[in-house]
Write a protein that binds this DNA or RNA. Structure first.
Length: 456
RNA sequence: GUGGUUGUAGCUCAGUUGGUUAGAGCGCCGGAUUGUGGUUCCGGAGGUCGCCGGUUCGAACCCGGUCUUCCACCCCA
């Protein structure tokens, strides 16, 4: 009995139209990456487990897909480990490889391994799928694409400015106007933790703060208490909950709050400089905002942090993120290489563009013309015409058999062909053909002896 | 990983307190129309009701398990 086929949780098939739409996004992103001087690389879909494990925190490790060793791997495990039934000690012995979890850590590995061939600063982009053993939800999949651009070996804040501009250029080109680029700085978060006397609770402090827009001030404070912060510390952090005014006023409020913290002030000054640079150049459609509660994906960021939110009214998690990480390659033994990068979430951008109806109509057209088939001598003449037009670069297909016209036209309809070509016995006799526009219904006559007069 | 939710035709969904042969709309195929599609009319095909097991004379419906979907946590693109 044949089994019913199914797809693993969190994965999807893509139809021709969906692939065309995804390619449209990818092509747009690539075009702008290259315009800004980034070069493409690719890395394997799986890495050695030790390359990935421990880089994303405990939570991240849990979400990494581990690949079972091949061969008789159980017999190689010692009895103590085997009988302990402890996944954390057993797993490393039977899974020596794992699917990549993002593109940044494999990139860091790449940089370290190829450091002698690379001309620094190295600007690379990478568009490949990543895998996470997460529980799927809307816009969260177990297999999804990331589109990353990073620069390593350049400490200048000019890099951050370029990335903001790149975000703006790409989202504008995709027709996705009104995106918000939220910006924060790890140094500000560290500084705040320092001045409120919660230096050792930095992570607890930021994780709770990050939820401000979602659960509100009271609940955030409650969570901070629960996470071990003192009431006094929370009280001192009050100005964070009351940031107001335009961005430069917010910078002033932060400076006041952080006046005792060298690192905190440094963070504010960095963002201020980025902001001033961006202001000078101007953005096309995106808005750059300061968001001191932004703290996600904090694991390896050390400086600026970015996150992009879709235009208002679209319920979707962030569609892009990034930041500066000063010592990512350090874990692989290469010190003092500063890096900064951004990422685009292809799958989420797709969902947003779909929801807003922003995909160009043209993408659903896979053919410029369909040539009908009337059989006999006309079929040969039609095939000849089709081949000539293909050689000229047109996307043209010929119906493979002399089926009823009704059927052939219905097929043209379904394929969303803008125009069909008729070349039957009647036309052949006069050395002609007819071109019918499928949306207007208009027909025009062309000459077989001068096809370029019709097709150009 | 925790708690909840969902699954019936290709798609969107009905289906009464458990009771003969499980329905609709859209789509699909054929005809009206042998050289003109997207409109209309007529006809037709298509389902082991997610899967496995249990209760019952009898299960789409009740119970258990499992997979899937979506949601809230966790975390994140």
């Amino acid at each position: 009995m044949p089994q019913k086929p199914s797809l693993p949780k969190g994965t999807r098939d893509f139809s021709p139209v969906e692939v065309a739409k995804r390619q449209h996004i990818i092509q747009t992103i690539k075009k702008h990456f290259e315009r800004y001087g980034f070069e493409p690389i690719e890395t394997p879909s799986f890495e050695n487990s030790e390359t990935l494990l421990g880089k994303y925190g405990e939570e991240g490790d849990r979400l990494i897909f581990k690949i079972l060793n091949s061969g008789d791997f159980i017999s190689k495990v010692d009895d103590v480990t085997y009988s302990s039934k402890n996944s954390t000690t057993l797993a490393p012995k039977i899974t020596e490889r794992a699917l990549r979890y993002d593109l940044t850590v494999p990139f860091a590995r790449y940089v370290v391994m190829h450091q002698n061939e690379i001309a620094f600063p190295f600007k690379r982009y990478q568009i490949q799928p990543v895998w996470r053993a997460d529980r799927p939800q809307k816009g969260r999949f177990r297999e999804f694409y990331q589109c990353d651009a990073d620069v390593v070996g350049a400490k200048s804040l000019l890099q951050e400015v370029e990335f903001v501009s790149l975000y703006d250029a790409i989202f504008t080109d995709l027709g996705l106007e009104g995106c918000t680029i939220k910006m924060n700085n790890r140094k500000i978060l560290s500084g705040v933790a320092e001045v409120i006397g919660a230096k050792h609770h930095l992570i607890d402090f930021t994780v709770a703060l990050d939820k401000l827009d979602k659960i509100g001030e009271e609940k955030v404070k409650a969570e901070m208490l629960e996470r071990g912060l003192s009431a006094h510390a929370i009280e001192r952090a009050a100005p964070l909950f009351q940031m107001e005014g335009d961005i430069s006023q917010q910078f002033e409020q932060l400076k006041k709050l952080l006046s005792e913290s060298e690192i905190g002030l440094e963070g504010v000054i960095e963002l201020e400089e980025i902001y001033n640079w961006v202001e000078e150049g101007g953005l096309q459609t995106a808005k750059l905002e300061l968001d001191v509660t932004l703290a996600r994906g904090l694991n390896y960021y050390t400086g600026a942090i970015f996150e992009v939110a879709a235009p208002e009214g679209v319920a979707m998690g962030s569609i892009g993120g990034g930041g500066r990480y000063d010592d990512l390659t350090g874990i692989f033994g290469l010190k003092d290489v500063s890096g900064v990068g951004i990422s685009f979430g292809l799958d989420r951008i797709y969902l947003v563009l779909e929801e807003l109806g922003l995909f160009p109509e043209k993408l659903t057209q896979s053919l410029d013309y369909l040539c009908l088939n009337f059989g006999g001598e006309a079929e040969k003449a039609a095939f000849e015409l089709v081949m000539k037009l293909r050689n000229q670069g047109f996307r043209i297909d010929m119906y493979p058999s002399a089926a009823k016209m009704q059927k052939q036209l219905k097929y043209a309809d379904k394929r969303n062909v803008p125009a069909v070509v008729f070349l039957g016995a009647e036309e052949l006799e006069k050395r002609e053909f007819i071109v019918k526009n499928m949306s207007s219904g208009e027909q025009s006559v062309g000459s077989l002896d001068n096809i370029t007069a019709t097709f150009q």
